[in-house]
Amino acid sequence: MVSLLKLAQVTEEGVRFLSPHDGSPMLLTPEHSISLQNSIGSDIIMQLDDVIVTTSPDLARMKEAMERSVRWLDRCIQAHKYPERQNLFCIIQGGLDLDLRRACTAEMVARDTPGIAIGGLSGGEAKDEYCKVVETCTGLLPEKKPRYVMGVGYPEDLVVSVALGADMFDCVWPTRTARFGNAITARGVLNLRNAVYSTDFGPIEEGCQCTCCRSTEDGGLGITRAFIYHTTAKETAGAHLLTMHNVHYQLNLMRLVREAILEDRYPAFLRSFFAKLYDDKSKYPDWAVGALKGVGVDLLSD
């Protein structure tokens, strides 16, 4: 349970919070959370966890949250009615403290859920700390279970996390940023609300195969940056168009990642990915260089 909700109050019983819609108090227990997800019938369902701000200095509270998440996992497993058709994922907690993460991972792996999520990240922590947590957890996880890092979505975070052993991600950023007129491209994020794009009649990203960027001859819409500039933040359809592009970018990125892994050339993929994103090696983020060095990929080599 992510405490984006300011007034959430966590007790052993569950999370009490005020509805973000109308401010009425609500209570979510692990059992109720699973019951709802059983009703929804999704293929993957998530345990209710106790999440506190990743960067919280309160180690005691962090430990309490981690241990409570383990206890809640037990309650979720108990309450889960369809283990044969819905996959319950545990969520590893423990903030940025690697010992807590190790302890949590051990407890949760022992409970043998079909998939394992690493939670509580993507909350404003330093990127190198994030990488350490992911690497620590994945190092302790069984090979044959999917590892899902929650709330991660920047392209560089995705490719580095894959190198650190993560399999799945989710993030609102590609669609959210689209609503603000930002286009994700291999050369970085472009804010198409900038007036320089008002007369840019090229596609959002050259060579992109999404419905917007493909030319009309190729069965696409042939949408130009200038048209996104023209509609974004003024008509909802502008957001629709950029959302299509951004989601396509992310899906295609992960497709390229899978191909590179299958063909055993992921390190080379990473190098070319960063070479496109930054025009000079000196601009590569230290955290990415460091994290990848830790798994034997030298970004700075040629």
């Binding site: 005020l18 509805s19 401010g23 009425s24 108090p25 609500m26 209570l27 979510l28 109720h32 709802l36």
Partner: peptide, 18 residues
Amino acid sequence: WNGELGGKGKVVLKAAHG
């Protein structure tokens, strides 16, 4: 909605329904 109860004075529970 700005995150306050807005002085309605009455607190109601909706989550307990199910």
